[in-house]
């Protein structure tokens, strides 16, 4: 049995694809994730996470040939699959249930 939940990093990767318009390759994803997290993000980690989620059918990918104007080499573009979307929303719902009624308190304590 595969694990139902998604790790933090996996969620971040999936959400980044959605933020980048639903389909993206690793470079803009790493840039976007570094901006959002404020930390260096490992491209290898992103790539491996994507391939792993592809095995689980949470994303789908395709190779894009080099174009005269843009990229010099092939790139692998990833899209979030319907199953992936569903899993993301499930994760969000689960976390929301935990956060319910705690927002003000958590803010109070961090201050």
């Amino acid at each position: 049995m595969a694990r139902r939940g998604l790790g933090d990093f996996e969620q971040q990767v999936l959400l980044t694809i959605l933020r980048l318009g639903g389909e993206a390759y690793s470079v803009p994803m790493v840039v976007e994730m570094e901006e959002r997290t404020g930390r260096e993000v490992s491209q290898a980690a992103v790539y491996i996470a994507l391939r792993r989620m592809e095995d689980k059918k949470l994303v789908v990918s395709r190779m894009v040939e080099p174009t005269a104007s843009g990229n010099a080499k092939e790139r692998r573009y990833f899209k979030v699959s319907p199953a992936g979307l569903e899993r993301l929303e499930e994760c969000r719902r689960t976390m929301d249930r935990f956060w319910e009624g705690l927002d003000s308190r958590a803010e109070g304590e961090t201050r």
Binding site: S26, Y47, N71, A72, R75, R76
Partner: peptide, 17 residues
């Protein structure tokens, strides 16, 4: 080999950024 080339290509692209 194809996968290796594209992966390293993307990493080189990141390097430029």
């Amino acid at each position: 080999a194809r996968e290796v080339a594209s992966t390293l290509g993307e990493l080189q692209e990141l390097h430029a950024y």
